[in-house]
Design a binder for these strands. Structure first.
Lengths: 374, 374
DNA sequence: TTGTAGGCGTTATCAG
DNA sequence: CTGATAACGCCTACAA
């Protein structure tokens, strides 16, 4: 292995000068820099990242923890994050958490052990992050679902607004009995089908209005300053759904909510089977994610229901697969690129200045109308 | 940061004893080990991976280079590789190569720079690996498509056999004019639609019969000893297609081959449009991958062609999405779990013994018949 | 069974 | 502008 020592000898300078050249520091004269670069090239020298890390405490690697990289949404998200990180000189290492709180806590611990410079956590299950973690001052950005009342940097999906828009769209298309297919993990909401159960949730919803200072220069700024106590994705989407129904006077008791085991296609298909067999004359379905919606599409086909003829269907995420489904899937399309950029930028900032106030952001979105709701 | 020194002080022993405990080495008495573990727990000590790496030369991290983690196939593959690696105590870092030879060479260089212990390369474009790389002795396992004449450990897809089986299946279902939708990068084969163009390829096909020593204990052994000169995936799949047609007497001139820009759904849809407009009365389509097949499915729908009524369609890979398509997609299903396990195992072996002979394996597969070919 | 000395390749500090 | 020196935290080798 060729070291800085070797390069230094070859160029007739000291180790330190080589280091300065490698790291683009100034204080090196042009002719010397030239000589050093030449020597580096000739010797095939490569910096030893471990040694650098040992000395500097920085690895140049950030972690990205997702429930399951094989799910389309997370695969695409990862691709964006990797791109955004590369543009800022970071490398990305992917962790799978298995959509379990234990996995997510593990990912954080593992991330610190491996001395990633920071971690982007696409948290689904982590109900309440350990006080340890919050206090650790480890650079951590939450991406997507969960919300921790401003204790972390957070780039959120437009859960409530998006679902409301999707539901309203179905109503506008003439749907009168609109179902929601969603995760079953509504905070503080049990017995979902039994009663008007949102009161408990609403009581928790004290927006704390904490603002992150916005020194990002993204063209598309989204909505900064979104905050609130820990309320999960399913709850937020449920709220959006109920809000739209209420506006349109389409509320129904018991609510037409079909819970899922997880956010898989398989679960979506199951839900569609239950839905078709419920005898409740459903003519519109809002699915909590596109992946679930694709499963619902399949499940409806199993039961001989036509989309959009018998039932209209809309998803959430706009994964590429949705465009190619038959029928193509209408969906809420958050700006994933924007989310990835913002998350990486927030993390980079936190790595630079650990004590800056946290920032909360909600991604901009648009409604994409395709065949499934025409 | 808490170091071994701190733990040693806390436990009243030397640094070295702590190291021995941490690494599960023997030569430490039970009471002392107990004390040390206690001290580790109390202090929240974590080994510093950089320091360990600097000293030992091993990082415990392997790289996985794929064209694009957002494509369903690679996402699922990655999930399997991550699992297999974890079982062997390795961590996985994912690189995106962008399906370009430059990207793949970069990934290798980058991988070495980062001091991964080795790299699993899902190579698509890398026509000829640099002699440098081959000679470098850097632990490298090729996964999937490319084939390098035995110079690397290689876990291949059953390209030729699988495609042959798929094509034969369509013939058995009564298809008479079967098209192939595939990548356009057939080695040494230009002007694909002009003439009987396989001769050039066949001339290259000298199987060299190199065998990897099989000390793996997988239940499902697949076919070891597959070798050959560098012939890419598209060519192998084309061969399987032609072989099946020849057997059934269904060969047609010019061949019903529709080339793709890349292996995306978009490209598949385009191909379907061309195919539908070709006026060649096609009644069966073999798509080079499931992702492409899903695009074809969509493209056929655009043109009002029914699957399987007007055209039967079969893919390759068995990604989960295929099961949920409408109609569900018949496909060639290689054992992905087996492939991931074998690739990681080969890499682990090569890391242990760099000079062992290379092993070539072809994954077992089965034909999965679903609605699209009934 | 436990402890001590030294060095892995890099960078921060400070002197020239 | 350049160079000498001392860490960074751990592990190999050898001594006690």
């Amino acid at each position: 292995m060729v070291t800085m020592e070797d390069v230094a000898r070859l160029a007739g300078v000291s180790k330190m000068t080589v280091s300065n050249v490698v790291n683009n520091r100034d204080g090196v004269s042009d002719p010397v820099r030239e000589r050093v670069l030449e020597a580096i090239h000739r010797s095939g020298y490569r910096v030893n990242v471990s040694a650098r890390t040992l000395r500097s405490g920085r690895t140049g690697v950030i972690g990205l923890a997702v429930p399951e990289i094989g799910l389309p949404y997370f695969g695409h998200l990862a691709a964006h994050v990797i791109g955004a990180a590369r543009r800022r000189g970071f490398h990305v290492s992917i962790e799978q958490t298995g959509a379990a709180a234990a996995g997510e806590a593990d990912a954080i611990a593992h991330s610190r052990t491996l001395h990633f410079d920071g971690l982007i956590l696409s948290a689904v299950a982590l109900g309440r992050v350990d006080r340890q973690l919050a206090d650790a001052g480890y650079p951590l950005v939450m991406l997507g679902e969960q919300d921790f009342g401003g204790r972390f940097d957070h780039v959120a999906m437009p859960n409530e607004e998006g679902t409301k828009a999707a539901t309203a769209h179905l109503a506008d298309q003439g749907c009168r009995r609109i179902a929601l297919v969603t995760g079953s993990v509504l905070d503080d909401v049990n017995d979902l089908n039994g009663r008007n159960d949102l009161d408990a949730v609403d009581a928790v919803d004290e927006v704390n209005g904490q603002n992150g200072q916005n020194d990002l220069n993204a063209v598309n700024t989204g909505n900064a300053g979104h905050g609130g106590n820990a309320v999960n994705m399913a709850t937020r989407r449920y709220r959006g759904y109920r809000a739209a129904l209420a506006e349109r006077g389409l509320d129904v008791h018991p609510p037409l909510v079909f819970p899922l085991e997880d956010a898989s296609m398989e679960a979506g298909r199951d839900a569609a089977h239950r839905l078709a067999g419920s005898g409740r004359a459903i003519d519109g379905v809002v699915a909590v994610t596109d992946t679930v919606a694709l499963g619902v599409l399949r499940g409806l086909a199993d039961r001989g229901l036509r989309v959009p003829g018998d039932v209209r269907l809309i998803g959430f995420d706009d994964i590429p697969e949705s465009r190619f489904a038959v029928p193509s899937l209408s969906t809420v399309a958050p700006d994933h690129r924007w989310m990835a950029e913002r998350a990486v930028e927030l993390l980079a900032q936190r790595i630079r200045s650990p004590l800056r106030p946290t920032g909360q952001y909600v991604a901009p979105f648009e409604l994409v109308i395709r065949e499934s709701t025409r």
